[in-house]
């Protein structure tokens, strides 16, 4: 699967945004990176397939997928990978489409099986192919664009789906739909999912593995059980966290503590 070792990611010539990002995705698992606003979650996932603008960002390190370091691929080798194997669903889904092309272009170029698309569309309570294919991206709501984006990702039969804040801007019933479909997706083949979010409730319900991003560093991935059974030790300087490894584990513990107080 995806093996990530990003030594440093910085805005060229300026401060480092992320450093020492090390993890390996496991097949048939949903991985979640929890982090607060501005912690660098979106930058992290964009860096994995070289989506960051090379004029502004510099990345050192490697991302191995199927035995190749995909960060060193040229653009012609990268395109098929992004088209077929590693699919993204962005938070700002409306603007991830070309506004001058109808959805027909996307349906036709990314997946050709109309029946499969129709059944995915109806799963996500969306209008059928014939109706949607006439619409432009700016004609649908943000929540709809997000669902269409996931339909297109699924229809490409990728091995990895990467999602950015899937629950923002949609209500819990639709999030519930996402959860069910993504669980089904990772149960098949060698598939896996990576998602980044600040929604700890969703993270708890959907994830198999959870890591925490804070101050540009990523903790190790904990199993969900391990994390939510984390003892509620009051936070004080005396607690020695460093030996269980994760940077930012203090913040993580604090977050989970707050979450438990709100939701239990």
């Amino acid at each position: 699967m995806l093996k990530v070792d990003i030594k440093e990611l910085s805005i060229t010539g300026k401060r480092a945004l992320l450093s020492g990002i090390n993890f390996e995705m496991k097949q048939n698992r949903i991985h979640t990176v929890l982090g607060l606003n501005g912690s660098g979650k979106t930058t992290l996932i964009k860096s994995l397939t070289g989506l960051l603008n090379a004029h502004f960002y510099s990345v050192t390190g490697s991302v191995f997928f199927e035995g190749r370091d995909i960060l060193s691929l040229d653009i012609n080798e990268m395109y098929p990978l992004r088209r077929d194997k590693i699919k993204y669903v962005f938070q700002d889904a409306v603007n991830s489409f070309n506004q001058l092309k109808t959805f027909e272009y996307y349906f036709n170029s990314l997946a050709k099986d109309k029946e499969e698309i129709n059944s995915l569309l109806s799963y996500f309570i969306l209008p059928q192919y014939s109706e949607l294919s006439r619409l432009y991206p700016y004609e649908v709501s943000g929540g709809m664009a997000q669902r269409i984006s996931l339909v297109l990702a699924l229809a490409a039969h990728p091995e990895i789906i990467i999602l950015d804040e899937p629950t923002s801007g949609i209500d819990s019933a639709i999030s519930n739909l996402f959860l069910l479909k993504l669980k089904e997706f990772v149960s098949q083949g060698k598939n896996s999912v990576l998602l980044v979010t600040h929604d700890i409730n969703f993270a708890e319900k959907i994830s198999d593995e959870i890591a925490f991003l804070s101050d540009g560093r990523l903790s190790k991935f904990y199993s969900k059980k391990e994390l939510f059974a984390y003892p509620d030790v009051p936070l004080s300087e005396g607690n020695n966290d460093k030996q269980d490894g994760p940077e930012g584990s203090d913040s993580l513990r604090k977050l989970i503590h707050s979450y438990k107080q709100i939701s239990l």
Partner: peptide
């Protein structure tokens, strides 16, 4: 749009 800490 608030994280768990701020919510609490």
């Amino acid at each position: 749009a608030q994280d768990a800490d701020s919510q609490l």
